[in-house]
Design a protein around this nucleic acid. Sequence first.
DNA 1: AGGGCTTATGCTCAGATTTAGCATAAAGAT
DNA 2: ATCTTTATGCTAAATCTGAGCATAAGCCCT
Lengths: 323, 323
Amino acid sequence: VIEASASTVVGLNAVIVAVTDEAPRVLVIPHDRERDSLPFGPLDPGRDRTLELALRGWVREQTGMELGYVEQLYTFGDRWRHPGERDGDHRLVTVGYLALVREERLTSDARWRPFYDYLPWEDRRDGRPAVVGDMLEPWLETFITQGPGFGAKTRGDVRDRRERVDIAFGMGGASWDSDRVLDRYELLYEARLVAEPFADRERPVPADRPMAGRAMAYDHRRILATALSRLRGKIRYRPVVFELLPDTFSLLQLQRVVEALSGMRLHKQNFRRLVEKSGLVEGTGQFATGTGGRPPELFRFRRDVLRERPSPGVGLPGLPGRQ
Amino acid sequence: VIEASASTVVGLNAVIVAVTDEAPRVLVIPHDRERDSLPFGPLDPGRDRTLELALRGWVREQTGMELGYVEQLYTFGDRWRHPGERDGDHRLVTVGYLALVREERLTSDARWRPFYDYLPWEDRRDGRPAVVGDMLEPWLETFITQGPGFGAKTRGDVRDRRERVDIAFGMGGASWDSDRVLDRYELLYEARLVAEPFADRERPVPADRPMAGRAMAYDHRRILATALSRLRGKIRYRPVVFELLPDTFSLLQLQRVVEALSGMRLHKQNFRRLVEKSGLVEGTGQFATGTGGRPPELFRFRRDVLRERPSPGVGLPGLPGRQ
DNA sequence: AGGGCTTATGCTCAGATTTAGCATAAAGAT
DNA sequence: ATCTTTATGCTAAATCTGAGCATAAGCCCT
């Protein structure tokens, strides 16, 4: 019953995340002078038993890394996503995966690169980053009134775009929702404030137009944005942060990782109170040394919390986790 | 660079949900005497521009229905999922979608069927359903101690299984997490308390073994469980319920839909207070008639709430939405 | 050894939210 | 008229949150 006028290939992308030095990092492969790509591998339909096993397999082969926590993100199947596909008689469908690891030495040509190199507007730990006020807001305003190209701009279109921009970027009185990473990236794509829409059309970037963040090859920055959206959402109701931490850690270490991922600063004492009360961690009775300051107690993740609470995660201010 | 020892076909499954008479229902196609399947359609790699457009297209063709809210769920790519694939030199990868609609008359051979026919243990609105105490708990206890087959059962295996069962089903003092729909189904699959593991191996169900819930063809019940998991999770932080309600509705109607989806009862006065304070709805000044009792005011969804709050959704008791 | 710096940790207080009910209002049914 | 049913207002107690004060316990420098 299935008739196809062309063939389909299924590929797998991995967003492999680690947090080091208070910066979330992603494993990327150099692609050309300015751009990187995510690690990519095919599904061998005749061999791999499951998609996830296929992914683990070629990540192991390519990087020597054994993935722990792995979660499926999203399947991207738009036509013409790959510039090379244009002529094509094959259709590429890719399944994106998120993997959380502790950073390790790399043997291949892959390298760790900060998430926020690609999505600088997402890091609000030191207040709203300069790029937002200096570049994004004025150019988004242009986008709202002018639209992406030079098509018709009815009053309704302008209102719609303003609403979408306000909601996504917390402008015009709306509040900033740290989870809307993907919405924001897609809006910037549509507004042509990132380089990818030009690359996708094989056009040069206009000289007068600034580009936000470091570009990636293909649609990989979209996949990256999807990963960060998912991770920020999930942190509140599943104990995923611990995948990124060593077995024992101080509460400040934990807080720094949560801050790095969520892109916002947290109140220290309240964070402590929340985490300790939540039952997510237990003290080990051991203390770290050489951290400069009073030595902190080391904690470990309490696996039992999964039994006790419906959706255990780390609370964020203004956005309480579900108790 | 991509070499395949067999070809891949991408298919699309739709979980189309409506809520009528306080029961969530799903659109299914009769498959054989006892089983239904989800609507299914192929991706035509040469034609359909996006996966979602492909889905909307064949749903329109097959059922005459125009989908509104559509969201991608998960991509299923395990080998040997389709019994017929065994011989096969093609690999089927399916992308599952969730669609929310208001129930309408059907013209095709598709029909609406209650969600909880397939997943009866998920409906706890009238307390724990009988099937849990009568059948699931005793047989899960057997599964914990004996394992799925007759393999080695070390002490560690038993402990692991007990922990997983306790967490998934809220047994042994653990609390019930309404979102863990998929975990529960997968555990029942592994414990062989649903018919699918037998069908997948083309074996008959042992006569002495009860089967929980109505089976579906292929792995469609797993997709259904994924859909309910997602929907239950999402209801708390995105205003998705309104996709299932008419334009104006009473607060009790809204509450009944939330209860139907979440499978639990809510405190009426508190639900009202929460919803009204959340800014999700606004009164219309109109009142319904003929509802038997004091006529309720009719409300409508306030689209502006998206601007005002980071993640607007309907609160659940014990599981407050994020404010 | 003591002062200053840093980080850790205990504690408090006011305000907001949540839970669980009580109580009244307004329809239709008997 | 009374009963039943649904809607809606209101409250007290318990809990949680946001913000900040204060002390503890290391290190570094002089």
